[in-house]
Simulated scan of single mutants.
Amino acid sequence: MGGGGISIYAHCLIIILFGIGFSSVSLVVMAAAAAAASSAPIDTSTAILIWVDPSGNGDFKKIQDAIDAVPSNNSEFVVIKIKPGTYREKIVVPANKPYVTLSGTKASETIIAWSDGGDIFDSPTLTVFASDFVGQFLTIQNSFGTTGRAVALRVSGDRAAFYGCRILSYQDSLLDDTGNHYYRNCYIEGATDFICGNAASLYESCHLHSLSTLNGAITAQHRGSPSENTGFTFSACNITGVGHAFLGRPWGAYSRVIFAQTYMSSVIVPQGWDDWQDPKRQSTVYYGEYKCYGPGADTSKRVQWSQSLSEDEAAPFLTKHMIGGTTWLRPAPTHFKRFTGSVTSLMKADEND
């Protein structure tokens, strides 16, 4: 299982801008840094602390109630600590509530579960629209079953990071929708297109577990044109499963997915990739592998339209530093303000001090 005692915010989070030159990247990074600096909280060491405890000994019994207590257009870091338990809630973090962290203590003991299927945008157990969001040490599960689309986690906000989380469903488990995202030490499980969407995301040291019994796809990346700087990179990950699976298939005609230095069990079929019954996409997708290993990593029978990358070809997809990821990850807060019943009133009190 993904887990690991890794500090939130301890790593540089990457905004993956694929396939553009260094000078262009520099300009984009400077602009992004300036925008982030103008809107981000000044004091990165301090956060408002809210406790969720189903027994009633915290500030709230439900996670959604704690999120609702965060004021619109929030400008302070808010850490919502969630006591162990199973929370049967369908949760939304609105776009006007940035800088929120949801933190369990251990993913196997802090579980957010719901059962809903059908539309991928309406079914998620947890939907994140807000920017600068962090999820840590949580299980996020959609228990709808095997009969259709059922998203556990939808991430549609920019600058979102997940550490030590378990994301569980069957079809479309993780809708990695839009924005720049980072996942580390996460366990992601499903059978069909269970990591899908059009975000620019880096997955490091994650465990991907396929429940497919026959040729399901792990990824369905949705990049629709060569001008979109989106795609999924999986670095130092671990792929296991129960049957047979493809590494990915193109939801979008210009789908882009990279697997690097990743262990692949025999669950991966020899051809590796599927064109989703659309041969025209073979000439537009970008599917690459770099220094992967394990019985499923043999590229001798891969489809001819995938690529075995050289070190130079893989390098732009693997580095965080060239895009200035440190501008939107901050150190873990070291000081906390006690929640007194209203984040809004607490903020106003601070302004009057």
Rank of each mutant, 00 (worst) to 15 (best):
G2C: 15
G2Q: 12
G2N: 03
G4D: 05
I6Y: 13
S7F: 15
Y9L: 06
A10F: 05
L13N: 01
V25D: 00
A36C: 15
A47L: 01
I48M: 14
N57K: 15
G58S: 04
D68Q: 12
S72V: 03
S75N: 10
K81I: 09
K83W: 11
I91E: 07
P98M: 01
T101W: 07
S103E: 15
T105L: 09
D122A: 13
T127P: 08
S131W: 00
I140A: 04
N142T: 07
T147Y: 02
V155Q: 07
G157S: 11
A161Q: 15
G164S: 14
L174T: 06
L175F: 06
D176C: 08
Y183W: 04
S205C: 13
S210P: 11
S210V: 04
A217H: 01
E228M: 09
T230D: 08
T233N: 08
A236L: 15
H244A: 07
R249T: 01
W251M: 10
A253Q: 04
R256P: 06
V257C: 10
V267D: 13
G272A: 09
Q277R: 08
P279D: 04
Q282K: 13
T284Y: 00
G288A: 09
K291L: 14
G294D: 05
W305S: 00
L318N: 11
M322E: 14
P333S: 08
T334E: 04
F339M: 05
T340W: 11
